[in-house]
Design a protein around this nucleic acid. Structure first.
Lengths: 219, 219
DNA sequence: CGTGTTATTGACCAACATCAAACTTAGTGG
DNA sequence: CCACTAAGTTTGATGTTGGTCAATAACACG
């Protein structure tokens, strides 16, 4: 449906900002390809990544109602996104009420993911946080068909994982080594294989229900 | 507008659960009076409070679209809430499209608060987290007229503050003492006075824009 | 085959957690 | 109105997780 609206398709290179914090937008962006993140810069030039986005995501849908972006949006790999004018989205919502349901539901799922990250960062150890993030991204990537049966190519540096999980890069490195030593995952560069998915899930206390996927991707 | 819909008004006592995790709801709840929180229980019986809610809030609006609650909702003080059947909300949305805008915008603001908490818990020290929380709650309470000019009655125990900020109660206690020693706040029981609002704001890196309040409450 | 980015290692340190006890406060019933 | 009790706050001692700094090793890319 969205693809039938007037789109402005644009490609972005690795580590390129698509939207900056504080900007006012007149379009929503739909991810067609690639891997994006929302982030924010805090005191001492620390960065907090707020969420990751894959194809099919609408990472700034909120600009439809909120004046100013409270975060930046960046491409982590070379990515392709489509910009859809707010006016076109609103027209579609007027003509077809189910569009409202769909998009609203989407933004509520988005909020559910924030809640999960909040508990992840707030209440779990470094190992559990990483396990949880791997589970989430694996399931989401599988849902859009860019993961293998039991492994995936995760286009994140350890520093980016650290920025997402509120850890230091050094500690992420050591914790990944722990996970490997325990035989839960094996890694080759950015490719990771799950040797013991069940244990990974347990370590990360991962329950995919919050993702609100209609089809069951794993189990 | 909401108050004109069919309401079932109900009072809840202190520390009483209003909705439990995993429940399926047929009504949305509107806070009329009191102080509520969303929370979740994690491994080792630790609790993560996800947000606080005052009168005027709709802390489970998402139940309109998501089948299962991913958090519990509890009254922290004796509170009064109104339950509105989903069907009635939907009818109101059909009859008056601006209701959709209003509620959707509300749920997007809700998500913006999550993002703020995420960076707060992820990237700030204990002192900054507490300062930030105090600022947020003060501004929100002022917006609904239940705070004084430069002080407020915060109905939270230090344990509840700890559960919200992912700290231990002991550390919250000591950090509050630091804030008092620095002359930023003074406390008498649950009443806190801001002796140096500007410094509190700075410590907590607080910028109220994310709250999307139409009227400027402070400064 | 450099050159810049990312991963890894080691040494050391700080923030915050945990445990347990003592002290306050507020609420309750006699 | 006071004693009693439970809940919340404060304190001290000690432990742990994860941060910081800095150097080295491994890649990736032109």
């Amino acid at each position: 449906m969205l693809r039938r609206l007037p789109l402005r398709v644009q490609a972005f290179g690795t580590h390129h900002d698509i939207v900056r914090e504080g900007e006012h937008l007149e379009d929503c962006c739909l991810v067609l390809e690639g891997f994006l993140c929302r982030y924010r810069v805090v005191e001492r030039s620390q960065r907090q990544i707020l969420s990751f986005h894959l194809s099919g995501d609408l990472p700034d849908l909120q600009s439809l109602y909120l004046d100013e972006m409270d975060y930046a949006l960046a491409a982590l790999t070379s990515s392709v996104v489509a910009f859809i004018p707010h006016a076109a989205v609103r027209r579609a919502m007027d003509e077809e009420p189910s569009v409202v349901d769909l998009l609203w539901r989407y933004s509520l799922t988005d909020a559910a993911i924030f809640r999960d990250w909040l508990t992840n960062i707030g209440r779990r150890t470094a190992e559990a946080r990483i396990a949880h993030l791997f589970c989430e991204l694996f399931v989401r990537m599988k849902a859009v068909g860019i993961a293998e049966e039991m492994g995936f190519q995760l286009p994140l540096s350890q520093t980016e994982i650290a920025d997402a999980l509120a850890l230091s890069p050094v500690h992420v490195n050591r914790t990944l080594q722990d996970l490997r030593r325990e035989g839960v995952i094996t890694s080759k560069g950015k490719y990771h294989r799950f040797e013991d998915w069940d244990q990974l899930r347990q370590i990360g206390e991962f329950d995919p229900r919050y993702l609100q996927l209609r089809k069951r991707v794993c189990f």
